[in-house]
Design a protein around this nucleic acid. Structure first.
Length: 264
DNA sequence: ACATTGACCTGAGAGC
DNA sequence: TGCTCTCAGGTCAATG
């Protein structure tokens, strides 16, 4: 199953860009109004009527679809959200909460099984990002090792919690924080003030590399590099580096996984 | 300032 | 086969 973190949202963005851009939206069907949360069904449907998705931007775990007539439709995927473009009505995916019908007869479904995601509208991306107190995007070119280190050290918490804090760096969730720490050989509960600059640089480089690499193989974990922890989650999977058992660890209420041998 | 806990929400899959 | 029930972990809010 896909847990929508930054690499997954890159994947959704690619799908969206390859299918849904520049087509007139004829109709928007809201199957479950609770997914809108901040906006009304009327506002959404009227805003999108005869409009077009002009481009898209990803920020953290959010996808902003720019509308030809101004403003942005914002997709947040919660834990179980995704997008699927389809042609025939009978192909409509399960748990589709909102469906966009295009002039060409095709459709885009916003799927969200557990209803923890949200669709929203905004006039301005920057103010939305500010209002939601999102930190710098994890893959932003403006984020370098120095700034990353400063951000991480600004919180006195454990590494895993700091990595997942969207106010510091936006985009990393439970799965990829585990992977980044695993690849760097750091224990999830190590404190942010226990690392030196060299270790932070390594952590930073691994973060960038893992997020980029993973985005190419969403839904096909077998194609990930052989030393990744990710395919070994949830099961009797062993550590791909030392062969030892993967253990669960509760960090800030999250179910983290790590190798006690490789991550001291 | 940070940690902890619970609420939101639903269904896949485990276990019996 | 079918029932029950645990569990998944993104984000926010309340409490310690």
């Amino acid at each position: 199953m896909i847990m929508p973190e930054l690499p997954d949202v890159i994947h959704f963005k690619n799908h969206f860009d390859n299918t849904a851009l520049n087509q007139t939206i004829e109709k928007t069907s809201v199957q479950n109004e609770k997914i809108l949360k901040e906006i009304s069904k009327q506002k959404l449907t009227s805003w999108l009527k005869k409009n077009k998705f002009k481009s898209s931007n990803r920020y953290g775990k959010y996808l902003f679809a720019e509308l030809a007539k101004g403003g942005y439709l914002i997709f947040h995927f919660g834990m179980t959200g995704s997008l699927a473009y389809f042609k025939e009505e009978k192909e409509e995916p399960r748990h589709a909460r909102v469906i966009f019908d295009f002039e060409n007869g095709n459709h885009l479904a916003y799927i969200c099984r557990r209803m923890l995601g949200e669709l929203d509208l905004t006039e301005d991306m920057d103010s939305f990002i500010e209002d939601h107190e999102l930190g710098i995007d994890a893959l932003s070119d403006e984020l370098d090792a120095k700034r990353f280190t400063e951000l991480m050290k600004s919180r006195r918490s454990d590494l895993k919690t700091a990595l997942m804090n969207q106010e510091l760096i936006a985009g990393i969730g439970n799965v990829y924080s585990d992977e980044i720490l695993f690849q760097t050989g750091l224990h999830p509960k190590k404190r942010t003030d226990e690392l030196d600059d060299k270790q932070y640089k390594k952590l930073f480089q691994n973060m960038k590399r893992i997020l980029k690499t993973s985005s190419k193989y969403i839904g096909q974990v077998h194609r990930l590099p052989k030393n990744y922890l990710l395919p070994n989650r949830d099961g009797e999977g062993n550590c791909p580096k030392c062969g030892g058992p993967i253990e669960k660890i509760n960090v800030s209420g999250r179910n983290g996984q790590y190798c006690p041998n490789c991550q001291q």
